[in-house]
């Protein structure tokens, strides 16, 4: 066997969705170099790390928004860029951070846009689409908003509508870029509980999260990043301690069990 060009032994992907030795850059600026990540199937993975550590960039490479300059992101052993756009969009769904709805669109019609990869030129609205949209509206708890224009909704409602849109895509893999930002704490917990429920129903969820305590409570698998590298990964209880938080966030803290659920909880020290 010939050695891979980087000289590192590249282990074959252990999971359906995996990055092997990828380097991510915007123009000349390299954000991440030689990163490997196997996305644990059927788990809720949270990617944490300080601002500008490359977590969103890593997520973007999994959904074909950024082409790695070296290495590959593969799905079922094949480069994600090698798929027909609609075929890979039936497997991996993504909710970006910045969202803008078309003017004047009703919630139901926006959620229906999630069906795009399942539709063809001559069949833009099937009974199957109808069912998927109905279920997605119900799962995200926005059924009663279905006929309202999106621009009239509150921030929390609007975010749940966008989640419903990605759910309507009915992809086994769901990637979310800071889905809870801009939401009040009640809506944050509701949304995270929804993602955990989706995981329980068999979907694989990967989210970039800012709140470490929430990540520890809801995720099965944490990926901690700093300066474009993956510093640690594993179950929250196995990897989160004061030393890791100090290393990744440069924040002195103690780690105690969350009094409500027992998962690790960080408390910054003065």
């Amino acid at each position: 066997m010939t050695a891979p060009p980087t000289g590192r032994p590249a282990a074959p992907p252990a999971t359906r969705l995996a990055a092997r030795d990828i380097t991510l850059a915007y123009g000349e600026r390299v954000v991440s170099a030689n990163v490997d990540l196997d996305v644990v199937d059927g788990a809720f993975t949270a990617i944490i790390g300080p601002n500008a550590c490359g977590k969103s960039t890593l997520l973007r490479s999994f959904v074909r928004l950024l082409r790695p300059t070296t290495g590959t992101v593969s799905f079922d052993g094949r480069d994600v860029f090698g798929y027909q756009p609609k075929a890979i969009a039936r497997e991996i769904g993504f909710l970006p951070q910045q969202l803008a709805a078309p003017e004047n669109i009703a919630v139901r019609r926006l959620v229906a846009r999630g069906r795009y990869p399942h539709q063809s030129l001559l069949s833009t609205w099937s009974a199957e689409d109808e069912r998927a949209v109905h279920e997605a509206l119900a799962a995200a708890g926005v059924e009663e908003l279905a006929e309202r224009p999106v621009e009239e909704l509150s921030g929390g409602q609007r975010q749940r509508v966008w989640v419903a849109m990605v759910l309507a895509q009915e992809t086994p893999y769901l990637l979310l870029d800071e889905p809870t930002t801009f939401l009040d704490i009640t809506h944050q917990y509701e949304l995270l509980a929804l993602f955990a429920r989706l995981r329980d129903e068999g979907r694989t969820v990967i989210a970039v999260l800012h709140d470490i305590n929430q990540a520890c409570r809801f995720a099965d698998h944490l990926v901690a990043m700093k300066d474009g590298r993956i510093v640690a990964q594993g179950a929250p209880a196995d990897i989160v301690d004061a030393a890791l938080i100090q290393e990744v966030f440069d924040l002195p803290c103690v780690v105690v069990p969350d009094p409500a659920v027992g998962t690790p909880m960080i408390v910054p020290t003065p």
Binding site: V63, P85, F94, P96, R113, Y116, P117
Partner: peptide, 8 residues
Amino acid sequence: ELAITSGV
């Protein structure tokens, strides 16, 4: 972003 990730 959503256009690409939904298969356009």
